[in-house]
Design a binder for these strands. Structure first.
Lengths: 337, 337
DNA sequence: CTCCGCCTGTTAACCCCTTTACTAAAGGCC
DNA sequence: GGCCTTTAGTAAAGGGGTTAACAGGCGGAG
């Protein structure tokens, strides 16, 4: 039995489809008794106007798309995203919107973007100039960039370079000279350049500190790492098992740092005694784990909120593409001495 | 400038709208040169078929709705949901679907359900018989219940009663007689009955243990608590500050238990020395925090996966409404002696 | 007793796209 | 050269709603 349509209700209630539509959207346009009769029939058949048709003519769906170039399985295993979504979700709550999480369909971001029934996007971890993002601009669909380079689109970022510099400088100041850097992989296999978006900015921060402290920058100490606990554990583990013996590790994100923590524990490596460790993000768990993670704090929830607000503003047609830069600061806890 | 439509492309390419449609959905139906020409025009204008119209005629959107009777701000602050979503998201990855997170619109779940452009729902924390869920059934929209009572709909639950019994029994066996129970609030303000769904089952488990150990069940020791860290902290804090002095705490979820941990630390209460604590869920942080949380382990990711798979099966028309019950077991770590 | 305007309800156009005929031209075959 | 089959494209009918424009009935004002 197919779903009831407006016509079915109209027939059963002995009115025109228009009347049914009015009963739902503009009851004052009809006599109370008619409204009541229509609604009764509708309720009886469990009828509700098809949201797709409705959105088609209304021109909007009330849904906000969030797109991250990783699988959802990975995304939701990372508290950074959960926390970011907490911020975005708060704005959705306020505006009665739904939040659609998307990841690349069969490697194609563009497809995912094209099929999403949403009013606008929050794009995390990609630059405005990414070739799969550009079509959105042409289509006139509003979007906000989070953690990515943007010139003309609204965007929210943290002061990555500055803060990773501080993290690296701290370690170098302590005398460390063998420092393993677990950087981000590029977000898409189609990008061969490791220096992309946030990943690039964070790495540059590390590099600048090395340069300033006159420490030779060795490419082998830089490991592109999957942004997951397993990625961090593996990247550190492999380096260690290959015989590298860093005295400190800089991780481009906390989830990677947590992976290092695990891999170190498995190998009987003491942190911070044998190896010092600094992450990035300050996800909520960071201060709860043992030892508490030294990291770079960025206001993740706020980041999500701002992104949500910028998007909502864009949807309303208020065009003031701001590029917001949030402060981030080094927080030393127990994985550093 | 409004978004380009199929007609615009057709006109510019000198063909009919049908041809444009074919160029996208059935290119072999057209001559290669025409397809190329159309696609070129489309690319040029950044045109992509409107997903809403497309879904309207296709009869499906490729989106899966997840609905939880809490604000998104609360949901995403709770690792239980992030972990559940990890499981659901994995299935979405496999089937190229998007995941739409919804929370009640202006207190109305029904509205949220009605406006969501999705093919089916995963409903977390509500019973099949909930008055706002029933319409879905009439409408013939597939849904799967997670953490809720279900008789006819597919559902995934853990063995709540059994496992909370084990948790309570463990504490009572240790001699505790003053036990604070932080139970779930009812999911909706419209429900006056505290004994609802998972919350009820978990509480019954605790109760049964009390009965079996001949310990008087005192209602004042049972506190309905908001399912958040703040909720747990406040509930425990208020009880303590009112002069209650439990020697053990049973929390209906880990996030609540983490709140207890924080509130205890603030008051200088030693856990487990002064108060023993057992949570529920075994969220990933549970074993990372200090002291590591004693809790009831349930396979959260798997729970999400199963729910996703049941829904996908239902969408395909494979109707075998299974009610799956997952095992849960007590895991003693450091918040118990 | 008209005329006007409001109240209710209807008809028809439209939102944007897909898909099922249907047509016309081109190619194959004898 | 005539007939049949492909090939390439089009027109029209939905899919399920909303909304602007319109029509008939009625009460009240003049």
């Amino acid at each position: 039995m197919p779903r009831a349509t407006i016509t079915d209700i109209a027939r059963q209630a002995g009115v025109s489809p228009t009347a049914v539509s009015f009963a739902f959207n503009n009851p004052s346009r009809l006599s109370p008794s008619t409204v009541e009769r229509i609604l009764a029939v509708a309720h009886n058949l469990g009828y509700t106007p098809n949201p797709l048709s409705r959105a088609l003519v209304a021109g909007h769906t009330g849904m906000l798309g969030v797109i991250v170039p990783q699988t959802m399985h990975t995304i939701f295993a990372n508290p950074f995203f959960a926390t970011l979504f907490q911020g975005i979700g708060g704005i959705c709550d306020q505006h009665n919107m739904g939040m659609l999480t998307l990841s690349p369909r069969e490697e194609s971001l563009e497809q995912a973007l094209a099929r999403a029934p949403v009013d606008g996007f929050i794009i995390v971890g990609l630059n405005e100039q990414h070739h799969e993002i550009l079509p959105l601009r042409k289509r006139g669909i509003p979007f906000v960039i989070v953690d990515g380079d943007a010139e003309t689109a609204p965007a929210v970022n943290s002061d990555d370079e500055q803060s990773t510099y501080a993290a690296a400088a701290h370690l170098l100041k302590q005398g460390h000279r063998e420092v393993l850097i677990l950087a981000f992989e590029t977000p898409s296999r189609h990008l061969d350049n490791v220096f992309y978006g946030v990943g690039a900015r964070r790495t540059w921060g590390y590099q600048r500190a090395f340069a300033e402290y006159g420490v030779h920058w060795r490419e082998t100490w830089l490991r592109p790492t999957h942004g997951s606990l397993e990625g961090g554990a593996q990247s550190f583990g492999v380096a260690w098992d290959e015989g590298y013996r860093p005295t400190a590790v800089l991780a481009a994100s906390d989830i990677i740092a947590l992976g290092v923590l695990r891999a170190a524990r498995q190998r009987g490596i003491q942190i911070p005694a044998d190896v010092e460790l600094i992450g990035y993000d300050d996800i909520p768990v960071a201060e709860l784990v043992c030892p508490a993670l030294s990291t770079v704090h960025q206001p993740i929830v706020q980041k999500g909120q701002l992104a949500g607000e910028l998007l909502v503003a864009a949807l309303k047609g208020e065009i003031h593409p701001e590029q917001i830069m949030l402060e981030a600061r080094l927080v030393l806890r127990e994985t550093t001495r």
